[in-house]
Nucleic acid binder design. Structure first.
Lengths: 142, 142
DNA sequence: ATTTTATTTCGTAATCATTCCTATTTACAA
DNA sequence: TTGTAAATAGGAATGATTACGAAATAAAAT
């Protein structure tokens, strides 16, 4: 794989976290998926390799990886989902309702909103677009 | 109260739903609160009046009222929250992390995003700003 | 190579939001 | 006023998530 797993190893080490096999496979799984995945999704995918992988491990690692900003999280239909975070530029996502694929959206008017609401202090914001990606739009039968 | 509860009664009847005491008190509670509230919030507030009000009733009514667009919903820290919907114009919210007060934001660049992502079909979107409202910002001790 | 420390297991249990089930009650139409 | 369809109470069930604690394992530091 030409995936730059080293940057993730470095990040783990920088945070005094150990580079374990399971952790790396979770990161790889999320890199390969490149969409929001639930704890169960990840367990399913890694089941052949690690049949006895405990939920405890998955949840703990998802939490840890989100904490060091390797992952970003969002709630999709009641379940927490995670995906690899992109740290190079601020962005949000379009999420396909059918296949779960995500697309990056760049435009973010947070300054516009800050000036619309002068008296408040915006500390955080969530933007998500939902719908059908090109492929799923084609595949739809009406 | 000068609150126009009649429009809500009409809306219920239009949808062949019964105008019950509990339903109307839930609507009143949400009107008075005018912020996102959880099922538990509502149960707490109505407890003196209806000590035995069942969760089923609360959840079913929240769902029903969202369904007929009397309420809008969002997930806040893992819990579903509801507030009275404004149907006259499209908008989103700023939500105060401290007191839960909401402020309407008008600017919504959904067309901009649609042209940024030509191939997808945006069917839905979620925009939420979080932070401190004017009052809570003042009240903060640093 | 040895030690130290973090991580995983594993089984189980607690928690919490939400939903489901059935008997009973209520709103409202006829 | 009566019939019936909808709504509710009360509690059990579900499902995601977190917690736990001790033993086993693995990673990294010396």
């Amino acid at each position: 794989m030409g995936n730059n797993l080293n940057q993730y190893k470095d990040k783990l080490r920088k945070n005094k976290l150990k580079v374990t096999e399971k952790r790396m496979r979770m990161i790889e799984t999320l890199l390969e998926g490149d969409r929001y995945m639930s704890a169960k999704d990840i367990q399913e995918i890694l089941k052949p390799e690690y049949p006895g992988m405990s939920y405890d491990t998955i949840y703990r690692n998802l939490y840890t990886l989100k904490d060091i900003e390797v992952l970003e999280q969002t709630t999709l239909s009641g379940e927490m989902h995670y995906k690899i975070a992109c740290t190079t530029h601020h962005h949000h996502h379009f999420i396909c309702d059918d296949c779960g694929e995500t697309k990056v959206i760049r435009y973010c008017p947070v300054e516009t909103w800050q000036s619309e609401l002068e008296d408040v202090e915006i500390k955080n914001h969530k933007i998500e677009l939902y719908g059908l990606c090109g492929a799923c739009k084609e595949a739809r039968i009406y």
